[in-house]
Nucleic acid binder design. Structure first.
Lengths: 148, 148
DNA sequence: TTAACTTGTTTTAATGTTAAACTATCTATC
DNA sequence: GATAGATAGTTTAACATTAAAACAAGTTAA
């Protein structure tokens, strides 16, 4: 692994840290992907179901902000969940611009079944780090994430 | 930020570490995306050009392994680079199953122009961490990535 | 009241992504 | 040499993703 960039030691280190971070998130993502495939869910679909499960019904623009995805993308993801009968759209009667999305009973059952194993799976993977190391990782990642 | 999972302290910590890692890589990705958009390159296209630049011509199956992407995906990415005249395909004469992909002069010029700013950009973002912290991050990420 | 602006959702076009099926080519074995 | 199996690449179908444009509904200001 590593960069082929010809820079000084500090630059090489920074690029290697970047690559390591990206590879780690790729690995976690692909293990998530494999795990969810058993339930015929994509990562995005799972994310939407999870948000609706833990936060209750919400309109697509809110979901879009929660999941950090574009509005057009949410339309597509909710479309696919709706086709499977896992969520339902409800046009708001007061302000007809809004569409409230909520889990169906089937969707609620599915997320309740899938979530615990999913969480356990992640906890398991992160357990290669000690509690102290996880704290450090959170600190580092937040600082990287919150730049502008 | 944080999970809504009702577990014990250790589980919550692990899930928060997971979420922090994913958010950080999302942030880095989206900044990469914005930066490369100026040159009309996607992250995948940049990755392919960079590999060909630093490692020289190679066939698609090797590229596929380097970039950790499926063969079908590489076909698409190389198609789009070829349409723009940045790379060229060459059928191997010895073994006609192989196609060697190489940068055109235009592609070489582009990657030479784009790469330094790109690397600098990443180094800059990672510089919110000290050298010691970057070392730790690399260690943590490698351990997360290399499980199973 | 109407025109202009704002906000929420959908559509469209382009790219990425995978898995699976397919074609072409090469190799080993009978 | 024919054939079975392996390998490289392409195609297809499905979903993800964005930006930008279109569309729908509500708000505001002249």
């Amino acid at each position: 692994m590593g960069t082929h960039y010809k820079g000084n030691k500090e630059e090489i280190r920074a690029l290697n840290a970047f690559i390591a971070l990206m590879r780690a998130s790729d690995s976690l993502n692909s293990r998530q992907y494999m795990s969810l495939k058993k339930s015929n869910l994509t990562i995005s679909q799972f994310g939407a179901l999870e948000a609706l499960h833990h936060l209750g019904p919400m309109c697509q623009s809110v979901l879009s902000k929660k999941l950090l995805k574009s509005g057009g993308n949410i339309t597509m993801v909710i479309d696919n969940l709706e086709k499977r009968g896992l969520v339902k759209r409800n046009r708001d009667t007061d302000d007809r611009r809004f569409i409230s999305v909520h889990l169906t009973e089937e969707g609620e059952n599915l997320i309740q079944k899938v979530f615990p194993a999913h969480a356990k799976n992640i906890v398991n993977q992160m357990s290669v780090l000690t509690d102290e190391e996880q704290k450090n990782l959170i600190d580092y990642c937040k600082r990287i994430g919150l730049q502008f």
